[in-house]
């Protein structure tokens, strides 16, 4: 059950679009800053497969300039998995 949070930077002038795009993806929570071009993204996926799918889809979001990880957690990450 991986949980990650990111700072997402939109392409120039595309903050609103980015929020809509990200919010449309499954397992995503979006908190836009209200005075900066910056969006906090929290992802909370049920398993590793879904997480990988999501990461792939995130990479294809057109309005997204860059994504930087601020927090990561996965409770199934056991040794020997």
């Amino acid at each position: 059950m991986p949980v990650f949070s990111y700072l997402a930077t939109p392409k120039r002038g595309a903050k609103t679009t980015l929020c809509v795009d990200l919010a449309a993806l499954p397992y995503c929570e979006v908190i836009p800053a209200d005075n900066q071009d910056l969006v906090v993204l929290i992802t909370d996926t049920p398993d590793e497969t879904k997480e990988k799918e999501l990461q792939k889809r995130l990479k294809s979001v057109q309005s997204l300039q860059s994504l930087s990880l601020t927090f990561g957690y996965d409770d199934h990450e056991q040794p020997g998995r």
Binding site: S5, I31, A33, D34, Q36, L38, I42, T70, F71
Partner: peptide, 18 residues
């Protein structure tokens, strides 16, 4: 996760508000 992202954002962009 949320707190950590917001705290990072705060450190990067002084004055950012949520």
């Amino acid at each position: 996760a949320t707190s950590s992202a917001i705290a990072t954002a705060g450190a990067l962009f002084p004055g950012i508000s949520f």
